[in-house]
Design a protein around this nucleic acid. Structure first.
Lengths: 136, 136
DNA sequence: ATGAATGCAAAAACTTTGCATGACG
DNA sequence: CGTCATGCAAAGTTTTTGCATTCAT
């Protein structure tokens, strides 16, 4: 799934340089989870002159448009991830800050069962494991 | 599990009025999850003259001492919950806002296994199910 | 042309910190 | 009494907003 200018138009957003660049950064970055500051620095490194406020605005718009997901991991700042359509949960190393994605069908199924047992059905969920390297 | 002044002493904390009052608020509050601001307002309502900075300091100390848990739920601010020793996760009804606590050993076990498989051990986790009444 | 998007700086929201005063043990 | 804790205000962080200018269509 590669997002492009058409996706911006479909979201009702004009195709501007900041938006295109930010999309590129989210797509090409080594880390899949970037803070607004990370994106901002990447823009500067790329020689683009985009303001931090614009980064926040664009990321928020992308979130509303369903292009990215915003996560509030522990640590006081949000991280943004391109929504590639593959659902997964996250494991965050509390020592290095590294983020690992995982998906577990059993847990997903158990969640459905638990909701069901209480007379509900699931509309969404949020699961984050905070971990540290074994024996540290 | 009711915490008292002995628990403060055991944590190496002097038994001061702000600490005792904050502990009481956490124990007696209807809501189990309170922001620093919530605690601060409750103190004012109770006629206590405690500064917001002290609330933050005390809550942070309580967290270090294992007396409370700090959660970073969506929305940019932390909430604190007394650690009563009974771990649980949350199910939030997106229609009524109702919060249901649940605990599932299988999910807990799976989380440990997943962390283990990646060479980590769990230090904490956050699981919230967003649900709606079945067929609505 | 015209409404939307941007950059900058200022403000907002939340949390931490420095320092003088006051309280616990 | 010595030390730790507190209150206040000031500073730090992260994110949002106001406004004049610039850009996309």
């Amino acid at each position: 799934m590669t997002l492009n200018n058409q996706d911006l138009r479909k979201a009702g957003l004009k195709v501007t340089l900041p938006r295109v660049k930010i999309l590129q950064i989210l797509e090409n970055s080594e880390q899949r989870h970037l803070s607004a500051e990370d994106v901002y620095k990447a823009l500067l490194d790329a020689g683009e002159d985009v303001g931090l406020a614009t980064v926040y605005r664009v990321l928020t718009q992308f979130e509303s448009a369903g292009l990215v997901e915003r996560h509030n991991f522990d640590g006081g700042h949000s991280v943004f991830e391109l929504d590639r359509g593959d659902h997964h949960d996250h494991m965050v190393c509390v020592e290095t800050g590294k983020v690992i994605e995982f998906h577990n069908e059993q847990i997903e199924a158990l969640q459905d069962i638990i909701a069901e047992e209480h007379g509900y059905e699931i509309t969404g969920h949020n699961l984050v494991l905070y971990v540290k390297p074994k024996g540290s």
